[in-house]
Write a protein that binds this DNA or RNA. Structure first.
Lengths: 144, 144
DNA sequence: CCATCATTTCGTCTTCTTGCAAAATATAGA
DNA sequence: TCTATATTTTGCAAGAAGACGAAATGATGG
């Protein structure tokens, strides 16, 4: 992450939108698949893609491709982590961020392939049945 | 300064513009008159007024009125100071910020009433002559 | 190689932002 | 009160940002 005026402005700008601030907040617990971020933000996939591109462009977020899926995570960069830390501290115990966090915890227990194909409710239902009987699908496509 | 999602977004948004980031950076050394900020940013006074209003609205900057002049300074609020600290750290040793800082040092030696009326060059010329002979005009209208 | 599917890019519309000049507001001093 | 002046507000034009659906891209798995 560069350290000049434009980079600083770009990072601040990137955090200056609720969807993007929520996105970096929900990445605190580790990387997430784009489809998981989309599920939480409840925006069109194209819109989420643009928001994540913005976060990547300014170095706050990194991406890792794994087959069909793209995982995004917080950058290791020190300046980037400072930005995120302050942004989340400034948001305090915002209910929206806590709700997002709870939903993320749910989604982490679901295979991303189910989430993408079936949506939140369908994937959760399959996860509920899959965890009690039959082969657990988490083995192959699970996110982290 | 509130600590919720909207406040955090507003603060980040406010810092996400070069003029506003430069403004908070130049306030590190203490409050400045609006006309001084305007002189450094070299923008229309109405534009600077709007930028400062944005910074005040989200709690990063406070204002103090003294007669005809309005002085702006960094907020004492902890969250606000964190935002400013990170923003400036993210900008690193940006030449623009250093140039601004040098100009601010010059302007602090000039009475604001001269700066507003005569502009930068005229005020500096008067300050140069005033510092060697005659009554020093800094006594009455000086900023800080 | 074809079909599927997660993601990105594109086109379009609407809304917000940024800049300035000009008018309005507020204060100081004669 | 009247004038001068520092700042804010308003009105307007140009450009950017944000949202979506549809089309394009890229990888998987038959």
């Amino acid at each position: 992450m560069d350290r000049d005026l434009d980079s600083a402005v770009a990072a601040a700008r990137a955090l200056g939108h609720p969807a993007r601030l929520r996105a970096v907040a929900m990445l605190r617990g580790g990387e997430l698949c784009v489809c998981q971020v989309t599920e939480v933000l409840k925006l069109a996939t194209s819109t989420v893609s643009l928001h994540l591109r913005e976060l990547k462009r300014c170095g706050l977020v990194t991406e890792r491709k794994d087959g069909r899926w793209v995982y995004v995570g917080l950058s290791d960069d020190l300046t980037a982590r400072e930005w995120v830390r302050v942004a989340i501290a400034a948001a305090g115990d915002e209910p929206q961020l806590e709700a997002d966090e709870r939903l993320v915890e749910q989604l982490r227990r679901v295979p991303v392939e189910d989430l993408c194909r079936l949506g939140y409710d369908g994937a959760l239902a399959r996860a509920a049945s899959g965890s009690t009987r039959g082969p657990n699908r988490r083995a192959s496509g699970e996110c982290r």
